[in-house]
C-alpha cells in the first residue's frame, strides 16, 4: 500500500510540475491543483498508513485502542485542502481577470512592461 501510494504521489507531483511548466494559464491552474493533491497524499503517506483502525475510542473505554490510525495528518490535510481550495479560487479569478484585460492566453506574450 505504501509503495502504491508513493508511486501515485510521485506521479501527481510529476504531472503537476509538468503542467506548471506549460505556457497556458489554464494548464497552470490544473498544475497547481494537482500539486496540492500530491502534497495531501504526501502528508498522508509520510505520516504512516494504518488500515481499518479508525482513531475512535470505543464506548465505555477511557483510552483509545492500541495501534490506531494517527488522526493528526488527517487534520493537517483537512486544513491544507481548505487553504488550497481558497487559494485556487482566488487564482482562477485573478487569471481570468488578468487575461481578459491583457487579451492574451499565453504567458510568453505577457511581456515586461513599464508604466
Amino acid at each position: 500500500m505504501n509503495v502504491l501510494l508513493a508511486i501515485v504521489t510521485g506521479g501527481l507531483f510529476g504531472a503537476g510540475v509538468f503542467m506548471l511548466l506549460r505556457r497556458n494559464p489554464f494548464r497552470l491552474i490544473v498544475g497547481l491543483a494537482l500539486l496540492a493533491n500530491a502534497i495531501n497524499l504526501l502528508i498522508f503517506t509520510a505520516a504512516g498508513l494504518t488500515r481499518a483502525r479508525p482513531p475512535l475510542i470505543p464506548t465505555g473505554a477511557e483510552i483509545p485502542p492500541e495501534n490506531m490510525a494517527d488522526p493528526l495528518p488527517q487534520a493537517l490535510i483537512l486544513t491544507a485542502i481548505v487553504i488550497s481550495f481558497g487559494l485556487l479560487a482566488f487564482t482562477i479569478v485573478l487569471f481570468s481577470r488578468t487575461f481578459e484585460t491583457l487579451k492574451v492566453n499565453d504567458f510568453a506574450e505577457m511581456k515586461e512592461r513599464d508604466e
Binding site: 494559464p25 502528508i43 487559494l87 487564482t91 485573478l94 487569471f95
Partner: peptide, 24 residues
C-alpha cells in the same frame, strides 16, 4: 500579481511538503 501569486503558491507547496515529511 500573476507572477507573485504563482511563485508564492509554489513556495507554499514546497513548505507544506517539507512539513509533511518532517511530521513523518
Amino acid at each position: 500579481s500573476v507572477k507573485y501569486v504563482i511563485l508564492s503558491l509554489i513556495a507554499s507547496s514546497l513548505f507544506l511538503s517539507a512539513v509533511g515529511i518532517l511530521y513523518g
